[in-house]
């Protein structure tokens, strides 16, 4: 049986940080570290989690942790793993926590290289769907229609024009040993995936949706609930890739209405009925593809 709230390490490894109240990214980092334990070396590139975790002398990680360059999460993980191995140290986990910008844009090349070498590292992308630390700019993981400071919502353009990049399948296409998607509204599933990844040799990648009250325009107590909603309305898919196969973890019986999910957030408030229809159509095309290509075992519960 996988780790539960009752059996989870009681130590806290990410504490006293300066993230906004209700920050989904900090929840993802906290839970992953509790699963991985004390002998974890964490790499945090430029982004919210490094900005809120290292404000000398307020150092909020109680395990070994280091800031990397914005582009260099994966390459620093490679170096840490090789360096510790060279010293004969083997009982450790090298984990990176990078944002969506740090992963899907500027850090993509370093990540691709690490997967190609099959370095023994775990890369976790906490996805708040924009460059939050520098004031909400669009990344390639910002979804269609979202208002950011670089994709404003006005008369001519209604937020981001481009769809969200499929980072999970891009990573899987490297034939990585293990890749998964996750969500802070499904923490039991996330803990299972982190634990599983920690036991696999080679490169592992987990992409977790982590709502950001500040950038999404939601109340601070909505983070976990809205994270559940994105899965239930079909706009985020919980899945795994292993041994060359895609596996779906959860299929909502009936999708809830994406309009309800979208309209709760100020970043989507400008969307017209037509925009919402565009989002629903692309969701249905995606699920058509998933139902055809991903294995799904109804008996396996989340």
């Amino acid at each position: 049986m996988s780790i539960t709230a009752k059996t989870l390490d009681e130590n806290e490894y990410f504490y006293g940080h300066k993230a906004c109240a209700g920050c989904g990214g900090s929840l993802a980092v906290r839970i992953a570290l509790k699963v991985l334990g004390e002998r974890t070396v964490a790499v945090l590139p430029a982004g919210c989690m490094s900005a809120v975790g290292f404000n000398f002398p307020q150092l909020c990680f109680s395990n070994n942790a280091i800031i990397s360059t914005f582009a260099g999460t994966a390459s620093m993980l490679t170096g840490i793993e090789a360096g510790l191995r060279a010293q004969g140290i083997t009982d450790f986990q090298a984990v990176g926590f990078a944002g969506d910008g740090g992963t899907a844009d500027i850090g993509l090349q370093a990540l691709s290289g690490a997967i190609d070498r099959n370095d023994d590292i775990l890369y976790i992308c906490y996805d708040n769907e924009a460059y939050m630390n520098t004031g909400i700019q669009k990344s390639s993981l910002t979804p269609f229609g979202a208002r950011t400071t670089t994709t404003p919502a006005g008369k001519n353009i209604r937020g981001n024009l481009r769809p969200k990049k499929n980072m999970f399948e891009i990573v899987a296409a490297h034939d990585i040993p293990y890749a998964a998607t996750a969500n802070v509204g499904f923490l039991q599933d996330f803990m299972r995936k982190v634990e599983k990844a920690s036991k696999i040799k080679g490169t592992k990648f987990i992409h977790i949706i982590a709502p950001c009250p500040t950038g999404w325009g939601i109340p601070s107590d909505e983070t976990v609930e809205i994270a559940k909603e994105i899965v239930n309305c079909g706009l985020w898919v919980l899945a795994e890739y292993e041994n060359g196969e895609y596996k779906l973890n959860y299929r909502p019986k009936n999708f809830s209405n994406p309009a309800d999910y979208l309209k709760k957030q100020s970043r989507f408030r400008h969307l017209t009925d037509e925009d919402i229809q565009t989002i629903i159509t692309s969701r249905d095309i995606k699920w058509g593809y998933i139902d055809k290509n991903y294995k799904f075992n109804q008996e396996e519960k989340l």
Partner: peptide
Amino acid sequence: LCCPDGVIAKQDGKIAIDYDFCKGCGICAK
């Protein structure tokens, strides 16, 4: 499990909150 700041701890079969570091986000109550 859901507290982003990790300020809720187990105590005597129930829970206790570290008010030095709780930010009052309200996730726990929800």
